[in-house]
């Protein structure tokens, strides 16, 4: 993978890529398993940093905490099999201190696992043995990596679009006016760069708020937030 591509990938993640760069990364990702793998890891890493990871793998976090808390309760020496936390062999007596060390260990363990890839191998086996065609990119982890809309098969897109229209239609029939417009203007062209697994609005352009009067601007902001 070229350095340039890596940079593009970062830019896409940060929402700083322009349309052309985004398109290039998407096109590359179709064929390049390494790129998809990297994409996945970068997101996983970011989610862990933000503490969002329990949305994806609650059991990972829980298992770690359970393990760490068990040590804490037993007032055992926190072993350092990973050799990553200097001083972790000191017997921890304060629960407060223990928690800090615990967090550091949890974070480091998570980081190591992510960097090394391939965790939850056993779960993955389970998924593969279930006998279903799984067209997700094979990323080597069992965390379900949602397929990007832009790389989905035609059948998958078709199915999903059918549901979009069905939803808009029901909603439009039940809520007049603007809701019906959503159904009426349905177009697959509206699937923009925002169809990534993170669901983030990476391509939302900043809009000039021309309608806000200067004297009501603060009021408006607070009203919405």
């Amino acid at each position: 993978m070229s350095e340039q591509l890596k940079e593009s990938l970062s830019a896409v993640m940060d929402g700083e890529a322009d349309a052309f760069e985004l398109r290039r990364v998407l096109d590359e990702a179709k064929a390049d398993e390494d790129l998809r793998e990297r994409w996945h890891r970068m997101h996983l890493l970011r989610d862990i940093m933000r503490g969002d990871i329990d949305n994806y793998a609650p059991q990972l976090r829980q298992t770690m905490w359970d393990g760490l808390n068990k040590h804490e309760e037993d007032e055992e020496v926190v072993e350092d099999p990973l050799h990553v936390v200097p001083g972790s062999s000191v017997k921890v007596s304060s629960p407060w201190l223990g928690r800090i060390t615990g967090t550091a260990v949890a974070a480091t363990v998570a980081l190591l696992i992510v960097v090394n890839g391939g965790f939850f191998e056993s779960d993955l086996q389970g998924e593969q043995n279930s006998g279903f065609a799984n067209t997700q990119p094979a990323t080597g982890t069992a965390i379900p990596v949602p397929t990007m809309y832009s790389t989905a098969t035609a059948a998958d897109r078709q199915r999903m679009n059918g549901f979009f229209v069905s939803h808009y239609q029901s909603r439009g029939m039940n809520m007049p006016g603007v809701e019906f417009a959503k159904f009426a203007s349905f177009s697959t062209a509206s699937f923009s760069g925002a169809s990534f697994s993170t669901g983030e609005q990476t391509q939302m352009p900043p809009l000039a708020d021309s309608d806000v009067q200067p004297d009501t601007q603060n009021e408006e902001t607070s009203a919405i937030e």
Binding site: F132, A133, N134, T135, Q136, P144, V145, P146, T147, M148, Y149, A152, T153, A155, D156, R159, M160, F163, F164, H167, Y168, K182, F186, S190, F191, S192, A194, S195, F196, S197, G199, Q201
Partner: peptide, 15 residues
């Protein structure tokens, strides 16, 4: 045939 897991966005609508 189909992906077991998929996410897409259309404006404010998520699928």
């Amino acid at each position: 045939h189909g992906a077991a897991s998929m996410v897409s966005m259309n404006g404010a609508t998520v699928a």
